[in-house]
Design a binder for these strands. Structure first.
Length: 213
DNA sequence: CTCCCGATAT
DNA sequence: ATATCAGGAG
């Protein structure tokens, strides 16, 4: 009974791969540590905005220690425009402290260890292991959540359930790219507000197609 | 469940 | 004015 669902998911995966052959993560970074910080900043914020902020941020802060040594008020100013800046500043400082005390300032290439860090949940940990270390992972963001329901992979708002559902539908080799494909499609075509169903390569398969327009 | 919270499109 | 943006902590 799951076989049909898997074939359906793989068909969607193939269609999106054909549509976005060069898909990759939208966040800009040059090492796992920068990726971790950028992903923490990306909560409830567009990747485009995060990239504007991190372009300057990473010139100033290059190591976990550099974030610890600065006054929190100054860090808050440096990340202000990403929103939730007080929370994020606190998360980054606490996270960097633990990186220093537990991992000698290195970002662990391990989902469970990452998830234990302050300010790091399943989504952030998945992004870092998946993109920073090439370890298969599914990052469930708002797009993956919305489109998984629209496509009928699952009927749930629980990010963890959606993550496990996608993991059983697709082979591990596809997980990271699939997350990016869905996120990209969500940004370009399948918007939350007014999706462009008439331009969507999935419209013939999508159970939600008729309800729109 | 609520709170954190600015930028942007509609 | 309001919804939405690669969430996580308490």
């Amino acid at each position: 009974m799951n076989k049909k669902q898997k074939a359906y998911a793989e068909k969607i995966n193939e269609l999106l791969k054909a549509e976005y052959p060069e898909v990759k993560i939208a966040l800009e970074y040059s090492n796992p540590f920068e990726l971790l910080i950028a992903t923490i900043l990306s909560a409830q914020c567009t990747d485009a905005r995060v990239n504007i902020v991190t372009k300057e941020l990473f010139k100033k802060y290059k190591t976990p220690k550099s974030f610890i040594d600065i006054e929190i008020e100054e860090l808050e100013k440096d990340i202000f425009s990403t929103g939730f800046y007080k929370q994020k500043a606190k998360s980054i400082k606490n996270c960097c402290s633990e990186l220093m005390s537990k991992y000698r300032g290195e970002v662990p290439a391990d989902f469970d260890k990452l998830k234990e860090l302050p300010g790091v949940g399943r989504k952030t940990a998945s992004v870092v292991v998946g993109n920073g270390f090439g370890i298969p992972a599914v990052a469930v963001d708002t797009h993956v959540k919305r489109i998984s329901n629209l496509l009928g992979f699952i009927s749930s708002d629980d990010a963890e359930k959606i993550e496990f559902r996608i993991k059983e539908l697709l082979p591990p080799s596809e997980w990271v790219r699939f997350s990016h494909l869905i996120a990209t499609h969500g940004r370009n075509v399948c918007f939350a507000r007014k999706p462009k169903c008439n331009e969507c390569v999935l419209s013939k398969l999508c159970p939600s197609y008729k309800k729109q327009n």
